[in-house]
């Protein structure tokens, strides 16, 4: 079987298209590259959707934690503490158990025990907590001059937040937020590894790497392939986030821009 055929058969195996049976016997490098790459679809899906959806909640959490109002501050503080204070491994375990018990009482929760939704929710909450803490740190270090200037222009409430506080917060938080994005993509490998089941052998990159390591009894080929894919993803994240970061800072003079680059304030 040529490599092209293998790619045609297995490139979308992880989402249920193509050959149903996984390769058996005589495992080729091409099969390993294709299937592990196919599994990356899930990692990318979890990473992107959790990151984008988590962004909104993270902003709310940061504002809540910085709020003067105790009823807003305390829940935000506790939420962040709970999700930053416990390993994702354990969060997946409890997430799955929780959804499973809800499901037995309310049929509405049926899809929540599948990874595509249940694990996504856990990742969403987790990344929201971490990003929330990063944004909170950034909120605390917004230069006083910025907010004073906003006051002087007569901005207050929502416009003040939308046009002055929020953009500055993002600018300050961006390097640390890039790190968070990298960590989030890495932690997507835990989805099928602990907690959530794999249906019909549709799993993520680690699931297939594990499959090949298990079948060939040689961990030295599939895991480095997996590592290579993740290095590629990491480079893409750094590049994309760098582009966005430059856009966020486009109004600053060249010299000041450079200052924003290395500020390892809050990395996860």
């Amino acid at each position: 079987m040529s490599c092209l055929e293998t790619i045609a058969d297995y490139a979308f195996r992880s989402i249920g298209y193509g050959e149903r049976l996984l390769p058996r016997g005589d495992y080729t490098l091409c099969q390993q590259f294709t299937l592990i790459g196919s599994g990356m679809i899930w990692n990318v899906y979890f990473g992107i959707v959790a990151l984008i959806s988590g962004f909104g909640l993270a902003t709310a959490l940061a504002v809540g934690k910085a709020s003067q109002n105790r009823w807003l501050r305390k829940p935000a503080e506790w939420f962040i503490f709970l999700f930053r204070g416990s390993p994702l491994f354990i969060q997946f375990f409890f997430g799955y158990f929780f959804f499973l018990s809800l499901k037995t009482h309310y049929p509405f929760f049926d899809p929540f025990t599948s990874a595509w939704l249940g694990a996504l929710i856990v990742l969403f909450l987790n990344t929201a907590a971490y990003s929330g803490e990063i944004f909170y740190g950034a909120l605390q270090s917004i230069p006083k001059g910025d907010t004073e200037a906003a006051d002087a222009y007569g901005l207050s409430g929502w416009p003040r937040f939308r046009r002055v506080v929020w953009p500055t917060m993002l600018r300050l938080a961006w390097p640390a937020y890039t790190n968070e994005a990298i960590f989030l993509f890495h932690s997507t490998t835990l989805v099928f590894f602990s907690g959530f089941p794999a249906w019909q052998q549709r799993g993520d990159a680690l699931y297939y790497a594990n499959y090949f390591a298990d079948k060939t009894f040689n961990p030295f080929i599939p895991y480095p392939i997996l590592a290579m894919y993740f290095i590629l993803v990491t480079l893409v994240i750094i590049w994309t986030m760098g582009r966005i970061g430059r856009r966020l800072n486009r109004h600053l003079p060249q010299e000041a821009r450079r200052k924003f680059r290395f500020r390892p304030q809050v990395i996860r």
Binding site: L21, W199, Q200, Q201
Partner: peptide
């Protein structure tokens, strides 16, 4: 998987039994 039936895989044996109890 070979037989082509609907397979759901868990990391530990306990989870496979728990899945049946829960109706998963």
């Amino acid at each position: 998987a070979e037989a082509g039936w609907t397979l759901v895989e868990f990391a530990t044996p306990e989870e496979t039994v728990a899945a049946v109890v829960a109706g998963e």
